[in-house]
């Protein structure tokens, strides 16, 4: 049983809030089922990454400050998005490093790393009888080091694989390219749409070729992009956020 004590602020990124509430709900329910004290600050908006990745970090400053104000009272901030978490940790360096800013940067976690590294939960005993392809979202993989990038010569580890490998009935399929970018890239997806879509198509083809029913990831942004291409081209694949798989857990 988990002996964790502390208040958790649930950070639901803007695009999840508006377009994929089910991912937020799954994350919340999962944390609640684990018996944790979770609250969702109503006034939260976004981490500021869309502006910053477009070069407009200075414009994003106010958004950063808002984020810190919303979350600094919590012991931990947990989010179903590796990319946004990485942005808070890495790029809030332009703010004055007050105690609040430092606290928020240190204590903001992506869901999988929170489960494994903070709660030490690696086997929820879930049942998910499907063939699943894992899309390793880049900011989670190479930024938060949720796994070992295929370029590196370190002992292989992957938090996502670890969490899913014990699920009953779940078969993790092997991909030809284990961690190539899907091509979303934030505003890259709209300012360089041709390459973005081509990269997505190629990822989907890899998952399809290797027999995936579902593509899962730690980031809904990648999945939103892949889902958009899947639906446009009527591919027989579904996307599902890892929180939704983990939330099939029945304690």
């Amino acid at each position: 049983m988990i002996t964790f004590k502390g208040r958790i602020g649930l950070f639901i990124p803007c695009y999840i809030d508006q377009f994929y509430p089910q991912v937020g709900i799954a994350t919340l329910e999962l944390l609640e089922k684990l018996g944790l004290d979770v609250a969702y600050p109503f006034r939260q908006t976004c981490c500021g990454q869309p502006m910053a990745n477009s070069g407009c970090e200075e414009d994003a400053r106010k958004v950063y400050q808002k984020f810190v104000a919303n979350f600094s009272s919590f012991d931990y901030v947990v989010s179903p998005s590796g990319s946004c978490v990485y942005h808070v940790r890495k790029h809030y360096n332009i703010l004055e490093q007050t105690e609040d800013v430092k606290k928020v940067r240190q204590n903001t976690f992506e869901l999988c790393e929170f489960l494994l590294d903070v709660l030490n939960v690696d086997d929820l005993g879930i049942h998910f009888p499907h063939k699943v392809g894992i899309h390793q979202s880049c900011h989670g993989l190479r930024g938060l080091k949720l796994g070992t990038g295929s370029e590196l010569v370190f002992e292989k580890q992957s938090k996502v694989h670890k969490l899913l490998s014990k699920a009953k009935g779940l078969e993790i399929i092997n991909l030809d390219r284990e961690d190539e970018c899907c091509g979303f890239g934030g505003t890259f997806s709209v300012f360089q749409p041709d390459i973005s879509v081509k990269m997505g198509k190629d990822r989907i083809a890899d998952h399809q070729k290797n027999g995936a029913e579902y593509i899962t990831a730690t980031d809904t942004s990648c999945l939103m992009h892949l889902e958009g291409i899947i639906r446009r081209n009527n591919k027989p694949l579904k996307t599902i956020h890892i929180a939704e798989i983990l939330n099939t857990w029945k304690p």
Binding site: I12, F19, Y20, P21, L28, Y40, S189, H225, I229, R232
Partner: peptide, 25 residues
């Protein structure tokens, strides 16, 4: 809509997470 050149837009849900939370929690 350069997003839509090669992709479908997400299917908009009836409520945001924020709205859902206000009602359910």
């Amino acid at each position: 809509n350069t997003w839509g050149e090669g992709r479908e837009l997400p299917i908009p849900p009836n409520y945001s997470f924020n709205e859902w939370y206000r009602i359910n929690r």
